[in-house]
Amino acid sequence: MSYFNADNLETAHEIISRYPRKKSALIPLLHLAQEQEGWVTDDAMRQIAELTDTTPAEVKGTGSFYEMFKFHPVGTYMINVCTNLACQLLGGEELLAHAEETLGIKAGGTTADGMFTIEDVECIAACTEAPCLQVNYRYKLRLTTDDLDQLIDDIRNGRATDIPEHGTLGLVRQHVPADAGAGIVAPEQATERPVWLARNDAVAEGGEG
């Protein structure tokens, strides 16, 4: 039962290799799964369980704690409208209502064509630029309802080229060249004092002498 495509499987193994415990890769792997299909399928969780020596129940137990992971299909473009206090004070709720009306869906819903999902979200960390939203976690700041209409129109007409499809986060991944890494440190493998701390001894001795 394989879910990841060949490239992503290789990426998955690389991600796992950066942690002393495989289970630590669980959240990054769920992101990778979501990147591949736009949401997290049961098959994806089964394979992640295999890759991290956990059970599918553990994978879902962890994954479902975090709201970015979707366990059912969502729109290609996820519009997250912030309504937390800073945005509320400057029209966040009105912006959300406008989005709902324009797209004909309620927060949490997805348009019939599978293009958009709207969510009513907590603070997205752009509070001075209220009201604001994220489309697939890309910021759109100080939006008027007209701006929102324009944004939706741009997306519908393929003009929002700066926004990747739902599931894709950072476009650059960390990559540690084999010869450049210091090596991951597992608790059971590294019980010795790091070598550079010996510099403290030299001074202590020097001081005594």
Partner: peptide, 25 residues
Amino acid sequence: GYVGKNIMGTEFSVDITLTWGAGAY
């Protein structure tokens, strides 16, 4: 050579692993 093995040519070596969350305050 700022991160990883033998940083700036010294015996100081450490890896930085970039990891990220998924939505939970």
